[in-house]
Write a protein that binds this DNA or RNA. Structure first.
Length: 109
DNA sequence: ATTCTGACGTGGG
DNA sequence: CCCCACGCCAGAA
């Protein structure tokens, strides 16, 4: 694939690679695309993910495994339902067995 | 141009 | 685990 030069495209590209039933953190993606330290930009990029149906933003959480971005989805618990539908256990906006379902792009790839 | 905010991360206590 | 402070970069007012 051609290398995306846009920061957003890179984020979307990695997010699309997240396997089913797995989750990753903003920092992991940021580091993989070469924007280590700018994890905030990853989250910001996700703001435009709504235009990219192939981008599973619900599989991206912060390093604590908290569904910090659930507030940005249509419903209040849409993100949690999506994760639960993939077999991921979520409790109080926090992913259970986070280390088990965690997927690191720079590590798995 | 300046200021603030934001789906974060890391380090120290 | 919690809390606090700093860094980070892009965009909106």
């Amino acid at each position: 694939m051609a290398e995306e030069k846009n920061f957003f495209d890179k984020v979307y590209d990695v997010a699309r690679l997240i396997p089913y039933g797995r989750v990753t953190s903003y920092g992991a993606i940021a580091r993989y695309i070469g924007a280590a330290g700018s994890a905030r930009m990853v989250g910001w990029a996700m703001n435009g993910a709504g235009k990219h149906p192939d981008v599973p933003a619900h599989r991206v959480v912060n390093r604590k495994g908290l569904l910090t971005g659930k507030h940005h989805f249509d419903g209040t618990n849409l993100m949690q339902q999506l994760l639960e539908s993939e077999g991921i256990e979520v409790k109080e906006n926090a992913i259970q067995n986070f280390e088990t379902v965690f997927w690191d792009p720079g590590k798995e790839l």
